[in-house]
Write a protein that binds this DNA or RNA. Structure first.
Lengths: 328, 328
DNA sequence: GTGCATTAAAGAACCGGTTCCACAATAACA
DNA sequence: TGTTATTGTGGAACCGGTTCTTTAATGCAC
C-alpha cells in the first residue's frame, strides 16, 4: 500500500487525530503500555493514513540505526553476489548500504569514511587484502565491524578454509599422477588467503613432480597472455589455477595451442559449469558464508563479545570433466 | 582522517568551544555570512575535532537527502554491475542504496516501499518487466524516478535499442545463409524488450529460412535442457540466443551432442570472451548506459521536466569466432 | 554627531521522533 | 478500608542540525 505517500503524515498528525499525546502514539508503536481502547483508536488512524515513522527522526534520537554498510571488492562475481544474497536471507530489519570498491584499496578507505559520515550502524567488509591504513581506520572505529576474506587476527571475521582446500586439492593432484604441472597463482600481496594459503598444500603435493608456478592476475586477458606464454614454451598435462576465472583464461590459451591438459580451479561455482569441459573445482558455499557473516555481525553488534570472533567455512572438491581421463 | 570518530562531536560542541552560537556554526558550514575572524576560529576547531554534521539531523530538517535507491534485478550480471559502475562514475555526493530483487517482481514492490520508508531522495529502477502494481506504486510516488530496461511510456527512462539490435543481427544472419536456425527466446511477458523487440528483426530475416523458436529461461540449466531437447531432434547450423547466457547453455548442449553450429548472442560482453569459441554477440555499453541513467536521474530530480524523458542507447554487433566459417 | 543601511551574531523555533517524569486512575494487598 | 503497586497517559525535554527573527555593531553619508 503506497497510497498517501504523497503527504507525509507525522506522529503529531496521528496523535491529534486520535486525541492522544504523541508520546502515547510512540508507545503504541514501540510496544509500551497502551490500553486496549486507545490501541484500537490509533490502529484505525495509522491504518487509514498508512503511517510509517520517519527514519531520520528515529535515528537522530536513538543515535543508531539499522543501516549496515557492506563494502565489496566487486559486484560482477558470483561469490560476492551469493554472499550478499546470504546476508539478505537472514536479514529482517536492516538495510544494506552496498559500496563497490572495484578492488581498489583507496576506495575501501574512502568507503569506510563515507559509511561513518552516514552514521551506519555497522560495517561488513568483504576484502582480499587490508592495508595498514585500512586496519587503522577499522581499529579506530566505534562501530561493530566484521570482515570476510582474510584471516586478520584483530578483527571479527569469517574466512574460507583455504589451507585445507589446498591440502585436499594437493591430495587429489597426486591421484592424477601428472607429468608436468602449471600453477597459475596470484600475488600473495594482493590476496594472501588465495596466493599463499591456497597454494601451500598444492605445492607440498608437487615436491616430486615437475612444475612451474607463474604469478598472474585476476583479470582474464592478462591470464590468457601469461598462460599462453608459459604453455607455448612447454606442454603441461595439468593446470591448476588460483581461481576459476584464471583457469578459464588458461583454457582458452590451451585450446588456441591445441593442447588438452587437465584443469583444476577454485571457487566461483558458476564458471565451472559454463565452460567446456566443465571445470573440476574446489568450491565454497558463498551463500552460506553470507549467512554466517550476517549471524556473526549481529552477534558482534548486539552482544559486543570481548574476544575476537573467528569463523571458518569449509568447502569441497567437485570433480567434473576437466580432470577426466581424456577430455580430448 | 578517521581520528576522533569515537566521540561524536556535535555542532553544539563546536559552537561552545568557539564561543559562538550554533546558528553561526551552521552558517559557517553552509556558506552564510560569517566574519573572517570567527571563520578562522571555527575553522581551527572543526579541523581539530574532525567534525562532520550528523546526516540524520540534516535530513530531518531539510526533508530530503542524498540517498538514491537503486533497484536491480540481479547483481551477478556484468550488465548490471557495469551500469552500477556507470552510476558511480558520475556521482559526486549521492549515496546509492542498492536493493537486489532476484528477478522477483514482488520484491520490487517491497523494495519500492522500503525505499520510501527510508526517505530516499529518488529511485532508479533497473528492470525486465513492470507489473501493474509496480506501475501504480511508481505513479503514486512523489519521488523522482527513472527506469531502465523497458520502454514504459509514462516513466522517465533509458532503454536499449533492442529493435535496431534485432534488425542488425537479422541482416547479419542473412549473410551467413544458414540452412536451419534455432532461436532461443525468452517469454516476452518476462522481458518484453528482449523477448519481443529483439526478435522482431531476427524473425523478419528468417521468413524464407527454416527455423524453430523455443521459449526458454534465463537460468543456465533450463537453457541447457531445452536446447538439448531441440538439438537432439534435429540438427541446426545456426543458433541465436536472446542473451549470451542462453547461448552458453546451448553451446554446451551442442558440444555434448557433438554438433558445431554457429552461435550468435546478445548482451553481456563478458561471456563472449570466456567461452570457446568466443561468441559473436550484439553488445551494449552498459557502463555508458549507467552514466546516461545517472545524468537523466539528476535532470529529473533537479529540474522536474514536464515531459517524459526517454533516452535510447545503441549497441553494436561484434563478430567473433562463433560465426566463423568453420569452428569445428 | 545623527540617521540609516549593512553586516555579524545570537536566540528561538522547528523537523519528527523517543524517553523521562509526574500524575491520575485502577488493581492488589493487608 | 486505607495503603501500596501497577498501568495508562500527557507534558516536556531532547537528539543535532537549519532557518527565521531579532538585536547589536559597524560603516557611510550628510
Amino acid at each position: 500500500m503506497i497510497n498517501s505517500m504523497n503527504k507525509k503524515v507525522t506522529i503529531n498528525d496521528i496523535a491529534s487525530m486520535a486525541n492522544v499525546a504523541k508520546s502515547t502514539v510512540s508507545r503504541y508503536l514501540n510496544g509500551g503500555s497502551v490500553s486496549e481502547h486507545t490501541r484500537l483508536k490509533i490502529d484505525r488512524i495509522v491504518e487509514k493514513y498508512n503511517y510509517t515513522p520517519n527514519t531520520f527522526a528515529q535515528s537522530l534520537k536513538q543515535q543508531t540505526n539499522h543501516t549496515v554498510g557492506v563494502i565489496v571488492p566487486r559486484l560482477d562475481s558470483i561469490a560476492q553476489s551469493d554472499m550478499l544474497r546470504g546476508l539478505d536471507e537472514l536479514n529482517k530489519e536492516d538495510t544494506f548500504l552496498i559500496i563497490n570498491t572495484y578492488q581498489d584499496s583507496n576506495r575501501v578507505l574512502a568507503a569506510i569514511e563515507k559509511l561513518h559520515s552516514q552514521n551506519v550502524g555497522g560495517i561488513i567488509l568483504l576484502t582480499a587484502n587490508l592495508t595498514d591504513e585500512i586496519r587503522q581506520a577499522l581499529t579506530s572505529s566505534p562501530l561493530p565491524i566484521v570482515i570476510q576474506g582474510q584471516d586478520e587476527p584483530n578483527f571479527h571475521r569469517v574466512i574460507m578454509n583455504d589451507i585445507e582446500a589446498g591440502l585436499i586439492v594437493g591430495q587429489y593432484i597426486k591421484t592424477l599422477s601428472p607429468q608436468r604441472v602449471l600453477l597459475l597463482n596470484v600475488d600473495s600481496n594482493i590476496d594472501y588467503a588465495v596466493g599463499h594459503d591456497r597454494f601451500l598444500g598444492i605445492k607440498e603435493s608437487l615436491t616430486h613432480i615437475p612444475h612451474q608456478e607463474i604469478i598472474t592476475d585476476f583479470k582474464l586477458h592478462l591470464t590468457k597472455k601469461d598462460s599462453y606464454k608459459a604453455m607455448s614454451k612447454q606442454q603441461f598435462d595439468l593446470v591448476v589455477g588460483a581461481t576459476d576465472r584464471i583457469v578459464v583464461g588458461a583454457m582458452q590459451s590451451a585450446f588456441a595451442l591445441k593442447q588438452h591438459p587437465k584443469f583444476i580451479g577454485f571457487g566461483q561455482s558458476f564458471f565451472s559449469e559454463t565452460v567446456s569441459p566443465n571445470l573440476t573445482s574446489f568450491e565454497f558455499d558463498f551463500f552460506e558464508t553470507g549467512k554466517a557473516l550476517y549471524r556473526l555481525f549481529v552477534k558482534v553488534r548486539d552482544h559486543k563479545p570481548k574476544t575476537v570472533q573467528r569463523q571458518v567455512i569449509n568447502g569441497q572438491l567437485i570433480i567434473r570433466e576437466s580432470t577426466k581421463k581424456s577430455n580430448h
